[in-house]
Structure formats: C-alpha cells, structure tokens
Amino acid sequence: MSDKTIEFIEKGRRLDGRKLDELRPIKIEVGVLKRANGSCYMESGGNKVMAAVYGPREVHPRRMEDATKAIVRCRYNMASFSVEDRKRPGPDRRSVEISKVSREAIEPIIIKEHFPRSAIDIFIEILQADAGTRTAGINAASVALADAGIPMRGLVSACATGKVGGHIVLDLMKEEDNYGEADVPIAMDVQNDKVTLLQMDGRLTQDEFKQALELARKGCKEIYEMQRQALIAKYTV
C-alpha cells in the first residue's frame, strides 16, 4: 500500500511541517445555527464540519420511542462538494457506517434517562473533507450537544492516530491517510478516561497499538481543552 516515492517524515517533521505528535490547527465556533437547539462549526486542518442538535423532541415514527429513556439518532453526511471529485449525494455504505459508529461514540455520555419517550437528533455535515472527518464530526457533535443544554456525563473528544513511514503519528492528513500504513480513529470521554470509539484500518503490532492509543489520549485531551474554551467563549463578554 505504501508508496515508496513519498518521504513522509524528514528530520522529525511531517509533510506539512508538523511534529509527529502535533494536531492540525483547530477552530471551533458554538451556536452558529439559529434554528437548531445546539450547533457547532469546526475546522481541523482541511476539514470543515457543521454539527446540529435538535431535541429532546417527540419521536416520529412513534414505534421507535422508548418509554424509559431518550433515543439518539445520528446522521453523518458528506456534502457533494466536500471532496475533490464530486461525491454522489445521499447516504452510502460508508456514511451509514460512520453515522452508526458516531452515534455509538456519543450515546454513552448522554444522560438519556432524563427524557423518556423523546428523541435527540444529531446531524453532522461534512462541508470539506481532508482525512479524519468522523473524529471532527464527533468533536463538533459533542460541543453542539452541550450547547443544546442536554445533560451529559462529560464531553466526547476524538482524534486519529496512525502509522506513517514506520512512525506512529497523531491526526493524519489526507496524504498520510491514503498512503500510510495504518489509521486508528479513537473517541473518548476524557474526564472519565473511557474509550467510546476505536477503529483500525491497516496493521499495527501490539506495541505500536499501545503507543498509538497513548498518543490518541494525549490528542483527545488537547481537543477537550479546545472544546471547553469554545463553549466558555460563547458566554464570555
């Protein structure tokens, strides 16, 4: 898979000049959509993601409702203009899978028992993609949930690690994702130190995997701080 012509790491710096354990620059804005109950716009490197949260609200269709707790629904969608070649709009195998894993990454921190017979709907729109959209989507959705005033046990932060040119690196960008050896997106509840999403594409040895997990934990902590700052900034005069 790896393309020998590309030299990923030179003198400890990556293609875009980052260190091995450095995140891409992140920008988070809270409450960008007027009609959503909670919303968040996030940029992480070349990724541009919008997340909206509606609810708790009535469940339609009715048969999906749960008499004891809220249900959480999540839709991950890529805009047709989000990638270089136009993406055919609408759900496909990939986005259905990411919707499901994103929901499962976010669901455990929501205190669903407060809202029986209701639904919390999360919409993640990818406006521009540059590797690591699912983690960016989860980060944005988590902030949007807090903005919507939904009770949660913490915030979910997510970032990817991977193996590129024999090195374990944090937050892969497009070239590294396409030609690297492994991609491991991880989402976690930083305060409670619980992992809610872990996927792996490629191969890692046990030691490399442990190293990757540790690196992801560090990345998630950094992202968590940025999420917190973004939320607080909304109500700072």
Binding site: I109, A146, R153, G154, L155, Q191, L231, I232, T236
Partner: peptide
C-alpha cells in the same frame, strides 16, 4: 461571572 461557567463532567 466567568469562573462560574461549567461544562458537563466538571467536578
């Protein structure tokens, strides 16, 4: 005012 602002999960 600011120091009273908390986010989910704060002790």
């Amino acid at each position: 005012m600011n120091k009273n602002l908390v986010i989910p999960g704060d002790l």
